[in-house]
């Protein structure tokens, strides 16, 4: 590759990465997203695919919950990083 530094796509803001959302049954859903796409949008799309309400969806990355208003760029995510999805749990008994 003789691609010079000047012709490389601009990484900041606009780069597209592949993210994997995984549940505990091992099911993976892949998303191609821009690094400045808000997680809320990814959660909405994931909820649609899984046919569950988005309010029942929790995304975890590095052991912490992801805030819908943050972005893959904010989290320093890289191509093919895995997000764990946990669904709502309830209890009373």
């Amino acid at each position: 590759m003789d691609q010079s530094a000047e012709t490389k796509p601009k990484v900041e803001g606009g780069s597209v990465i592949n993210l994997v959302v995984k549940d505990q049954a091992g099911t993976e859903v892949h998303f191609k997203v821009k690094s400045h796409t808000k997680f809320q949008k990814i959660m909405d799309a994931y909820a649609g695919k899984r046919s569950v309400d988005v309010s029942a969806i929790r995304f975890l990355y590095d052991g912490s919950r992801l805030d819908g208003s943050s972005t893959p760029g904010d989290q320093g995510m890289e191509d093919n990083d895995v997000i764990d999805c946990v669904l709502e749990q309830i209890g009373g008994h």
Partner: peptide
Amino acid sequence: CNDNPDPSSAGGGSHW
């Protein structure tokens, strides 16, 4: 700690 045995169902579990 929650007793939901099924990670694929939303709103699962009955006890904390």
